[in-house]
Simulated assay, not measured.
Amino acid sequence: MKTASDVIARLASDPSRAGLVMDFDGVLAPIVDDPAASALLPGTAEVLDALSRHLAMVGLLSGRPVSFLRERVPGENVVLMGSYGVETWVDGEIRVLPAVAQWKPAVAEAEAELRRLFDAADVPGIHVEGKGLAVAVHWRQARERVAAAAFVEHVVREVAAKTGLRREPGKLVEELRAPVDEDKGTGLQRAIRAAGVDAVAYAGDDRGDLPAFAAVLALGGDALVVGGVDIAPEVAAVDGVAFSDPEEFLVWMKDLATVLDAQI
């Protein structure tokens, strides 16, 4: 079984052909009750900058929009892929896959309907988050999480059937997005091809990361599984190197940066 040190050794053996791609929430930033308050752990931005000066590719692949990532990740050397990889930051602008862009009106309709239904239900702790190319419903702040989860799933299924959007469950969240064959796995594959890297590691923490884990393992790369209290069983079962939380993963990134710095 591979260890965290094994992955460092592999990436550092030929940095010019190596890449590290990560989710944002739950990997670089602790999960918080208010999604808008999510932020990098202190020192993470500096480590990302250091890694991007050595590795051929350092990227973020998140369910968040690129605009969200741009606000929180300084510099231009980190590849930003938002909305599960269907939008990217390229040459100073956000580019969206055409097959997904055409679903923006349906997403806007779904967001408006979800807000109307949950406002009318007046259930404390349920929060609707508009993400541009997707809409998410969180219930992390609900007092009765089991009941809230059942209610949210019921409403989201109804709105999905009405709008034609695809339902994607996550960690105390339900999301609706375009029903196209795009996910973090296809997004990761595009990024790897564009960067021309051979050794790749992907770090994630939730069900939405499963396609990326499958893709990186199929390519002979490494899965870095960042755990937490609410980690799904299928995520915990991924064949990869496990980290207990974002803090432990940050220590690993610092160790990787130290090894790469020493090779100059």
Rank of each mutant, 00 (worst) to 15 (best):
D255P: 00
E144M: 13
A4L: 06
V107E: 06
A237L: 12
R145W: 10
L172P: 05
S13G: 06
K131F: 09
M253D: 02
A212I: 04
L219P: 07
D222Y: 15
E129T: 03
G19C: 02
G240S: 01
Y202T: 03
E168K: 13
R177L: 05
A142W: 14
L51G: 03
I264L: 14
D34M: 11
N77W: 10
V96Y: 06
F151D: 02
L260F: 02
A106R: 14
A201E: 01
R116C: 08
S13R: 01
A29G: 13
A120P: 08
V66E: 09
A134R: 08
G92K: 06
L48S: 01
D222Q: 13
G204S: 04
S244G: 15
V180I: 13
A112G: 10
M57L: 14
P42C: 08
D119E: 13
H154W: 12
A237F: 14
N77K: 15
D245Y: 05
E129D: 09
Q189K: 15
V229L: 15
G26Q: 11
V135R: 04
G125C: 03
A257M: 02
V180R: 09
T258F: 05
T44E: 05
E175K: 13
P233T: 09
A147I: 10
K2S: 14
E175F: 08
V235S: 14
R140K: 12
K2P: 15
W252Q: 00
G240H: 07
G132W: 11
P65W: 04
L80A: 03
R207E: 15
D255W: 00
D209Y: 01
H154P: 01
A262S: 08
V259F: 01
L61D: 06
G204A: 07
P74K: 04
L80V: 03
P65I: 07
T3C: 10
M22W: 00
